[in-house]
Structure formats: C-alpha cells, structure tokens
C-alpha cells in the first residue's frame, strides 16, 4: 500500500517537457480542459497578471515541499520538548523560528499530538485541504470520494485498510480540515528509539503517519 510522493523526483524541465507527463496521460482529460488551460494561461501572461517564469517558480516551490520536511519537524518535536510545546501552542511561528519556513501567506496550521489514549486522523470531507506547505501534494486517496465519505463515520475500518489496527480502548478523533485550517499529526514516538538522533527518527516518520492513517514505523 505504500505510495510514493512525486515531489522528491527531479524538477520538471523548463522547456515544457515534464518527466511526469507522458503524452498518454493527457488521454484522460477532456480535450476542452487542455485548451482551456493553455488559453487562460496565455491570456493571463499576455496581460501581465503573471509571467511564465512565475508559473515555473510556483511549480518548483510546490514540488519542493515533500513529507521529508514534515518528518524532520516531527523528529524535532520528539526530541525537543520546548519545540514540541511551541508547535502545539502555535505552529506557524514555531516553524518560522526553528525551520525558517515562511508560512505568513498560508492557512492556519494546528498540530495534534497522538498519545497512548488518543489517536488523530486528518481528512477533508468537503474537498482536499491538506498541509501542503509542510507535506506537499496530498495523496490521491486523500482526495477520493471513498476516504472523504467514510473516514468520519468508520475510522477504525478505514485505518484497517491502511494496515493500522489500534487498541480498542484508544480514542480516535477525526479532524476535518477547511480552507483556513490545516492539521498535522505528531505520531507516537515508537518504542525502542531512546537516544536516537533526529535524522534516524525522521526516517521512521511516514507521510501517512502525519495524516494519522498509520503509525510511525517501528525501528
């Protein structure tokens, strides 16, 4: 079930040929969609609303955000209680300080800590809101009708589809994201990692564990 985020691949070439875009993929689109995209992009560039370079820079920025960043943040939170407290209290300033992330123009971010008694799962029932500035592009299943419909009423069976079985007495809290509020989960630190440094710990933090459909990997 492991899926790979595409953000850690090489960046698209600037001449418009993108390794992620074999021509066949375009068959899945309505021809009108492709015309609409090119026409609107060209017109807005001609009118100076943005430039072709702006588009490329934005694509590069988006592709540069991957779950690896989230994993570093979680590993820091595991080893540094003061940082963890700051993150839980007010995430954006805490990240601006410790990770030099400029999140000024991004939606609010709430960090939720899993404990032995409480497990958080993040979803967006209405659309696909996701902490993109930390984790990159959401996985396809996060945007799917199936996940959005079901996780809020039967989280345990949804988690089971991800191979995650939690103790029956552990409360599961599902949080529903909005355009203005995104969530990041601090998974439980795995047992047997006492004394590990941040780099080793970060390797145990998966994207799915920060969404809450999985736990961090066992050492």
């Amino acid at each position: 079930m492991t899926v790979h985020d595409h953000g850690d691949h090489s960046h698209p070439e600037h001449d418009g040929h993108d390794a992620h875009a074999p021509v066949d993929d375009l068959d899945h689109y309505a021809p009108e969609s492709l015309l609409m995209e090119q026409a609107l992009r060209e017109l807005l560039i001609e009118q100076g609303v943005f430039s072709a370079e702006d588009i490329q820079r934005q694509i590069d920025l988006t592709e540069s955000r991957t779950p690896a960043l989230g994993a570093q943040i979680i590993a820091r939170a595991w080893v540094d209680p003061a940082f963890r407290a700051a993150l839980l209290e007010d995430a954006k300033p805490a990240l601006g300080g410790a990770f030099a992330l400029d999140l000024a123009n991004t939606p609010e971010l709430t960090v939720l800590e899993n404990t032995a008694g409480l497990h958080h799962v993040v979803c967006c029932t209405l659309c696909s809101c996701y902490p993109r500035n930390i984790l990159g592009i959401p996985p396809a299943w996060y945007k799917s009708r199936e996940y959005r419909s079901r996780v809020v009423i039967e989280p345990r069976s949804v988690l089971k589809e991800f191979g995650t079985e939690l103790p029956a007495q552990r409360e599961i809290r599902v949080v529903d994201s909005t355009a203005d509020m995104r969530y990041l989960v601090i998974p439980l630190r795995p047992a047997g990692t006492e004394g590990w440094d941040e780099e080793r710990l970060a390797a145990l933090v998966t994207r799915d564990s920060m969404i809450g459909v999985s736990q961090a990997l066992a050492p």
Partner: peptide, 29 residues
C-alpha cells in the same frame, strides 16, 4: 460527502502531469 456510503479506498497514486502542475500554479498565483 462526509458520512455517505462508499466502497474501499484505492491506494493507487497518479503522477501529476504538467497540466495538473500548471493549473495548480495558476490557482496559487
């Protein structure tokens, strides 16, 4: 669609195409 009946979750991933990236970039700009 929260709470609606729905089937099992498909864990497959789709590569983002240049179309996807450009639409996303236009929105963000």
């Amino acid at each position: 669609m929260g709470g609606d009946p729905a089937g099992p979750i498909d864990h497959g991933e789709h590569a983002r195409t240049l179309f996807d990236q450009r639409v996303d970039a236009m929105l963000r700009l």
